[in-house]
Amino acid sequence: MSKIATREAYGKALAKLALENEKVVALDADLAGSTKTSEMKKVTPERHFDFGIAEANMMDAAVGFALNGKIPYASTFAVFAAGRAWDQVRNSVAYTNANVKICATHAGLTVGEDGATHQANEDIALMRAIPNMTVIQPCDGIETEACIRAIADYQGPCYVRMGRFAVENINDNPDYKFEIGKGVVIHEGTSPVLFVATGLMVQEALGAIDLLKEKGVDPTLINIHTIKPLDKELILKYAAASNLVVSLEEHTVIGGLGSAVAETLVAECPRRQLFIGVNDVFGESGTPKQLLDKYGLSSGKIAERVLAALK
């Protein structure tokens, strides 16, 4: 399987989309080389706007573009998009239901060496709590390209969460189809264990399933790219046949995918749930692989925790 970071796939997809759709504009805050909107700037420089290191202004300027009929893709690191500009996202983007596409990169621990200040582990919770907001996290490059196209056709604000770290192209099959709000069954297992994963944790979950199979456990894996609105129907269908649900996210266990899954299950199909995520702590510097392992998000650590839970 080939590997590509979702931010790399974003840059390429945005460049293609901008050539096809004149309404598309890109906004960045002095990080175009990192968020990869620089790819779009190469082909349509007149529609790429840099706002300097001023994320609040960029986010509200995106609203102005949207209200005048453009489709703005506003990009910066997740920690700034969802954190620093939260008030702008809430009051100007979401309250007006503006057609702004917030494409945040460098989410989660796998930002790596930059350390805790740059590792957004709270952004899903922050964005999910805002009315009108759609929250999406593609799990690979193929899903990223499909997502970037789909949100252009969708009317309303979207938060797309992407990473710096290269991930496997899990969805590399001819039947793959991306639909906002629809989960993807990646693996149909034989054990009554359900994995619900998002973003690069889909890759880690697949690795964990390989390890678990050696121990006689074969979980089902659902990829939830759209965290809000959540594909409740799909999750409930598979949860009903499971006695352990495992949520997996590169994000704090407070308020993210795990919480969204639990909110659904507890109301309609209560199940024991194992929350794999960052346990209410800040990250630190390290390589992405080291960090995933240290914070319990690597395939090996997931398999260990699932086996312990099944004892």
């Binding site: 986010m59 509200d60 995106a62 102005g64 573009f65 005048n68 009051n91």
Partner: peptide, 13 residues
């Protein structure tokens, strides 16, 4: 503090 930024976006459009 937000309105002027929105007006900037409209003017750029």
């Amino acid at each position: 503090g937000q309105g002027l930024s929105v007006a900037v976006g409209m003017s750029l459009a």
